[in-house]
């Protein structure tokens, strides 16, 4: 098996995830439908949002869309399929593929979410590049933490709410860091260095821990 490279295996798993999701289109589109509903609900109840509320609602909706999208990722893997994976992939390959697939999924959700926010409510940011950097770093952190926690929850029980219980306590401060970071991009001239370093180091730490620990999670 050594002639098959790491990346082609990762690509295969990502393809497989997409094929499975596409076969089950109704649940896939319901994941995309969720931000549409919630953003419209926010618009309908607030009518006009100031920049601070904009940022808070944006991150909270992204967070819950992410839970919705990723909570069942590892639940649908039956124990028979896990056994099949052991013969084909290493834990690093499976985890990387899950990270990449979830990142693509959450990127689509965030793009939908963001365009709806801009369409319904407006775009209050002067420092746009910094805002998009905060969104990028933010969704990477969300993806890393949710993927790891949903793998633990998926192995522990067939209960989708366990993912939320395990990851939400960690998410609360992360979202508050993200809200602070995004708020700074409302005006030009704020310092971002510390936020970027903090988020990047959390991401790096999660990747390292994930790769080190996933082999204990995936084996029964």
């Amino acid at each position: 098996m050594s002639e098959v490279s790491f990346f082609s295996k990762v690509k295969t798993i990502v393809n497989k995830e997409w094929t499975l999701d596409w076969r089950n289109r109704s649940s896939f589109f319901s994941i995309l439908f969720y931000p549409l509903l919630t953003v419209y609900l926010v618009f309908y109840s607030f009518k006009e949002l100031d920049a601070v509320t904009w940022v808070m609602m944006f991150w909270i909706i992204t967070l819950f869309s992410a839970i919705n999208a990723m909570a069942k990722s590892f639940l649908q893997e039956s124990s028979g399929r896990w056994a099949y994976y052991y013969t084909l992939f290493s834990p690093e390959e499976l985890l990387t593929a899950k990270f990449i697939y979830h990142f693509l999924l959450l990127s689509i959700i965030t793009v939908i979410n963001l365009s709806l926010f801009i369409m319904f409510i407006g775009f209050p940011f002067a420092n746009q590049s910094m805002f998009f950097l905060s969104v990028l770093l933010g969704i990477i952190s969300l993806v890393l933490i949710f993927t790891i926690m949903s793998s633990i929850a998926g192995k522990a029980s067939k209960n989708a709410s366990l993912t939320a219980i395990l990851s939400l306590p960690v998410m609360i401060p992360l979202v508050s860091v993200l809200i602070n970071f995004s708020l700074k991009s409302i005006s030009i001239g704020n310092k971002f260095f510390f936020d970027v370093v903090l988020l990047s180091s959390i991401n790096l730490m999660m990747i390292l821990l994930g790769i080190l620990l996933f082999k204990f999670i995936w084996k029964d």
């Binding site: 790891i148 926690m149 633990i152 929850a153 192995k155 522990a156 029980s157 209960n159 366990l162 219980i165 395990l166 306590p169 999660m206 821990l209 620990l213 204990f216 999670i217 029964d220």
Partner: peptide, 25 residues
Amino acid sequence: AYFILRGSMDDVDKKAKLAATFNIF
């Protein structure tokens, strides 16, 4: 959440292993 995770499993071995990984994170 650590204790909820432990409570959600019956298999002792699995319980110890997953709880240990969650604890490190």
